[in-house]
Amino acid sequence: MERRDFLRVAVVGGAAAAFGGASWGTAFAASAQPGPSPYGAVLAPDANGIRLPLGFTSRVIARTGQKVPGTDYFWHPAPDGGACFADDAGWIYVSNSEVPLVGGVGAVKFDAAGRVVGAYRTLSGTNVNCAGGATPWGTWLSCEEIDYGRVFETDPWNRKSAVARPAMGRFKHEACAADADHGYVYLTEDTPDGCFYRFRPTTWGDLSSGTLEVLKAADSLTEGPVTWGRVPDPDGFPIVTRKQVPGAKRFDGGEGCYYAAGTCWFTTKGDNRVWAYNANDSTISLTYDDSLVPPGTATLTGVDNVTRTTGGDLFVAEDGGDMEIAIITRDGVVAPFLRVEGQASSEITGPAFSPDGRRLYFSSQRGSAGTVFGGITYEVSGPFRA
């Protein structure tokens, strides 16, 4: 038996026991195991080609190259990372565009009933804007996934011009997550030898200056205490940021990132893992690792963007895989929540919940066409559990 399969088998009993009846606070230290979804199995594809559990419905919000219905804004190519922001009369969904030279961010505005009432661009002229993260003060951080990429702070309402935030580091950015409890913004790096960073602004709410740090630990560490080291030159030149601090831990292709309740979850695509950084005691652990489930049972592959419900369930989008958004429940069960059919050359991006938690937005970046000009952005409505 190969070591990978041996690990899958050996962990099942212990991990399943650790999750059984456990609270989320203790459960996330073990690796989630396949099991039944609290929403039940996905059904046959609906008219939009989305397989959903009973009680859920989907609708298309926007298509690349076409006007968002009821607006004059042409939806951008390759829609990627996204987030929702509460508005006085509804909410706004922002979405990155992962293409060179144009890049940027688009937004769709909804009224209280969920009707589209506007769409517009909030950032242009940037490069390969992949993921990012929302701030507690109501801005969207859009990240460039290129060497020496930048973080741009954008206004979802388009009332203020976007501003580059070089103090947050120049590297191949993926996602970020704001931790108001401790005063940090965490950042992932999408390279096979990438790092996990945190940025502490000089003044919380102002990202123009601060200290960039990198997580330090043995590369083999999957559970235990970690430390942090200051990155001397956040501009990454002539030495790239990930190579400036001795002892920086390597992560295999950092992807999505989300903070809530003292924990920052982040994903690494090279090894199909969902990590948890406990900010209260500065430890890391694995929430999900597909090498630690029984052979042939992995329901989550190609881990990418991640978001969370107010009730504590994680929703993880797949880059490839079965084109699913999987749920990792607060009790440590991983299962498909939805599946997109007929779009095998695409990836799922930008999952984000409306402020009331009743609608989930996401995109198929390349759609059925399999190109950056085939992107489709969806909304799923239904009885999401609190």
Score class of each variant (00 low, 15 high):
Asp313Glu: 13
Ala326Arg: 04
Arg358Met: 10
Gly374Phe: 01
Arg330Val: 06
Asp290Cys: 13
Phe315Ser: 01
Thr309Met: 08
Gly311Gln: 13
Val293Lys: 07
Gly302Asn: 02
Tyr378His: 09
Ser345Lys: 15
Ile284Lys: 05
Gln343Asn: 03
Pro355Arg: 07
Gly312Lys: 12
Thr307Gly: 10
Thr310Lys: 15
Val316Trp: 05
Glu341Gln: 08
Leu338Pro: 02
Phe337Leu: 14
Gln343Ser: 05
Asp322Val: 04
Gly320Met: 03
Ala352Asp: 11
Asp356Ile: 07
Ile325Trp: 03
Asp289Ile: 11
Pro336Ala: 13
Gln343Met: 08
Phe353Asn: 06
Glu324Arg: 15
Arg308Ile: 15
Thr307Val: 14
Tyr378Pro: 01
Thr371Trp: 03
Gly321Val: 02
Ala335Met: 09
Ser363Ile: 11
Gly296Asp: 06
Gly302Lys: 02
Ser285Asn: 12
Gly367Asn: 12
Gln343Ile: 04
Arg330His: 12
Asn305Met: 11
Leu286Met: 14
Gly342Phe: 00
Asp322Thr: 13
Leu314Phe: 08
Tyr288Gly: 08
Ser345Pro: 00
Phe315Ala: 03
Val334Ile: 15
Arg339Gln: 15
Gly367Ser: 10
Ile325Gly: 02
Gly374Cys: 05
Thr307Lys: 11
Asp281Gln: 11
Ile328Thr: 11
Phe362Cys: 10
Gly370Arg: 11
Thr329Phe: 04
Val306Gly: 07
Glu341Phe: 00
Thr283Leu: 04
Ser345Val: 00
Pro295His: 07
Pro295Val: 14
Asp313Gln: 13
Arg308Tyr: 08
Glu318Lys: 04
Ser363Tyr: 05
Asp319Val: 01
Arg330Met: 09
Ser285Cys: 15
Val293Met: 10
Glu324Tyr: 00
Leu360Ala: 09
Leu360Lys: 10
Gly342Ala: 01
Pro355His: 04
Pro294Thr: 10
Thr301His: 02
Phe362Lys: 11
Asp290Lys: 15
Arg359Phe: 02
Val303Phe: 02
Ala352Cys: 15
Gly375Arg: 10
Gly370Ser: 07
Glu347Lys: 07
Asp322Arg: 14
Ile376Met: 03
Pro336Trp: 09
Asp356Ser: 07
Ala298Asn: 05
Tyr288Arg: 08
Leu286Pro: 08
Phe315Met: 07
Ile328Arg: 07
Thr310Ser: 14
Gly312Arg: 09
Thr329Arg: 05
Gly374Leu: 06
Pro294Ile: 08
Asp281Phe: 02
Thr309Asp: 14
Ser363Trp: 05
Gly342Ile: 03
Pro351Arg: 09
Ser363Pro: 10
Tyr288Val: 11
Asp290Ile: 03
Gly367Leu: 12
Ser354Gly: 09
Phe315Asn: 04
Asp281Ala: 04
Ser346Lys: 03
Val293Ser: 05
Leu338Lys: 03
Asp290Met: 12
Phe362Glu: 06
Ser368Tyr: 00
Ser346Val: 04
Tyr378Ser: 04
Ile376Trp: 01
Leu286Trp: 10
Asp331Met: 13
Glu347Val: 01
Leu292Ile: 01
Phe353Ile: 09
Gly342Cys: 00
Arg359Trp: 03
Ala317Arg: 05
Ala317Thr: 06
Gly312Cys: 14
Ser285Arg: 14
Val316Arg: 06
Thr329Cys: 12
Phe337Gln: 09
Thr297Trp: 03
Thr307Asp: 14
Ser368His: 04
